[in-house]
Design a binder for these strands. Structure first.
Lengths: 238, 238
DNA sequence: CGGCATCCATTTTGATACTG
DNA sequence: CAGTATCAAAATGGATGCCG
């Protein structure tokens, strides 16, 4: 450790501008930082799980980034109670707000930067699920309860709606899902962003929805997905 | 120049993830890049003017960033017609969309990262004006015409509303302004973000609005600023 | 598992000078 | 004005080892 570090532990370069954007970037503009926020967007995660969501990232660097985020008040480190006895990192309220503020950026990226998937690119369903979660209008979901499992390419994840609260996560759904969605990544992303039509993808067998029709309709409504208008209309106001 | 560069001019490190956020960051996540987008948000600028808006930035790096942005289709370089005979850089539609997608991030920063101004921090009114511009509901402005000049600390800028289109820029307004706004930075930002009350700031002589009352009311409405309710109510529906 | 420290190669930035 | 060239300083990446 250098002498400088002894006195000034986090000497992060600042832009030196009194500008909201510049200050935001001072805080979270460094490489990997916003992806860490994304990783924690779905809920608390352990160190190694965060690392697993960021293939290629150096563990030393992750440790530093997490410390910086903690110092910045965006992330909190919490020790789980005895049975588990491990640490988790979770977003503070401020951090969660930041995560939601990323949505337009994500949508922009889905439109202009995503393109076709490259074979060597990593994919976790959790990523698009987080975007979906952020874009759901929870006001429309009072009293709704449903669980969805997504099998997109090699990745599995779930989304649960429970009394106006939406949860997403990696792996199989925690309870038996009402609906199972199977698709290839590009069909899934295309439908989610409205670039591709759901009916067409179903017809081409690139998208499959299996399970409770009512829950399928709920999902379409919640997401405002086009192309399933018929089903949505059938649903009664309740 | 290394051999590698001869073959692969822009070897920008990628996260290698099929994720809209990661892809966005692959494109614009490097240091300075988003601030360049901000600088161009107000309209075309010449190389040196961009540089002036980014104190501390290296000219070599700016050249590279502009090239990358051009390659990425976010920025276009254009040669001005004979009289001016210089180059300007401007956002493409894609770039402008990105700029708008930054607004929530800016608002987040204004709330959580801005704080009080440090004496050594640079400030350009153009920065908050851009945020204001992006947050204005243009639908409400049909038929409106007004020009505002802002004198905030040592920085001067303007905003023009003309038939539903809003323009902002640095320096004095291009025509005689209908209203001149004078304030210290923190009062200005505080009122703009709703953290401080306009009437109070006026009473404390930290904010001053001088000029056509009608145009003042228009501004308040356009921005949805609280605390000027009395003036707004007096205004007739027309 | 949950980290942090260390060593080293490669990239990115920064500072400054310089040119058409 | 609109950049390039050059060199120095930091940040990052990758591997590996340690410790509780």
């Amino acid at each position: 450790m250098s002498i400088q570090n002894l006195y000034d532990e986090s000497v992060n370069r600042s832009y030196g501008q009194y500008c909201a954007l510049a200050k935001t970037l001072d805080l979270v503009g460094e490489r990997w930082t916003l992806l860490i926020v994304r990783e924690l967007g779905a809920g608390p995660k352990r160190y190694t799980d965060v690392l697993d969501g960021l293939p290629g990232m150096n563990t030393t660097l992750l440790a530093k980034r997490l410390r910086d985020l903690e110092d910045g008040g965006l992330v909190r480190r919490r020790r789980l109670p005895p049975p588990a006895a491990s640490n988790v990192y979770e977003l503070t309220n401020t951090g969660a707000e930041l995560c939601r503020a990323l949505l337009p950026l994500v949508q922009w990226g889905a439109r202009h930067a995503l393109g076709a998937r490259n074979k060597d690119e990593v994919f976790h369903v959790e990523w698009p699920l987080l975007a979906m979660q952020a874009s759901i209008d929870t006001a429309r979901l009072v009293g709704v309860e449903a669980t969805y499992e997504f099998r997109i390419d090699e990745s599995i994840g779930y989304m649960s709606i429970e009394d106006g609260r939406v949860t997403v996560g990696s792996g199989p759904a925690l309870t038996v899902p009402d609906v199972t969605i199977t698709a290839d990544v590009e069909a899934f992303v295309g439908v989610g962003t409205g670039r591709l039509d759901a009916q067409t993808m179903i017809a081409e067998e690139r998208l499959n929805l299996e399970g409770d029709p009512q829950a399928i309709a709920t999902l379409s409504t919640a997401l405002g997905v086009q192309g399933r208008r018929r089903s949505v209309r059938k649903q009664r106001r309740r």
